[in-house]
Amino acid sequence: MSETLLALESVEAGYGDFQALFGVTLEVPEGAVISLIGANGAGKTTTLRVISGLLRPKSGTIRFRGEDISRVKAHEMVERGISHVPEGRQLFPHMSVEENLALGAYVPRTRPRLKKLIAEQFALFPKLAERRSQIAGTLSGGEQQMVAIARGLMAQPSLLLLDEPSLGLAPKVVDEVFEKIREVARTGVTVLIVEQNVVDGLSISDAGYVVENGAVVLSGSSKELMANEQVRAAYLGL
């Protein structure tokens, strides 16, 4: 097994009085694709928000390359190499595709290479090259998701957090998006993906964690999870 890139240890977090995470512990090895699966409201999105600094954990530690990042703010996380592609895509709706991508390279580490990085994204997503001048809000759902992922990659992350990339997309488009994520992973980017679409999520992952009521209840390789009776009953409807 390769080195651990990200490790969460007994992370607790919440919103005001509402506690969402009750001690999440997980590990993401460098170069791997890891899925977080679980029901709506289980704490998957909150886990990503805590990792990317949008939400500060109440207790526990988050280590990235061995360094404690649990107090690092969201805008500093990008510079460190963590890109968060949020649920619902969250593009800048009145800007062109190209400007959305440009903002992905906002941090000093990547800004000087803006042009080259945009060209790289267009090579990976040829459809976006055709739509470079189109206003992001007018794109189809699938295209918007591609922009969101490409924008995340503009920061040249070592860890890419993807929150529900299949949300609201037609099955055919979902296949397309997952194919792209597979391609991204092949370039060596470590991916932590949250998916309600458990089969698709696990099919592109090396391993997964099952989150229930704000804690990890099960983990294993994707194959093991797919074969697990509990997982099959609860999430695959089998």
């Binding site: 703010k73 500093e76 996380m77 800048f92 400007e99 903002l103 906002y106 920061a155």
Partner: peptide, 17 residues
């Protein structure tokens, strides 16, 4: 661009750094 990003989506802006 950063200013317009904040104006258009203040939730996503910090995620750009």
């Amino acid at each position: 661009r950063a200013a317009r990003a904040i104006a258009q989506n203040r939730y996503a802006a910090p995620l750009m750094g």
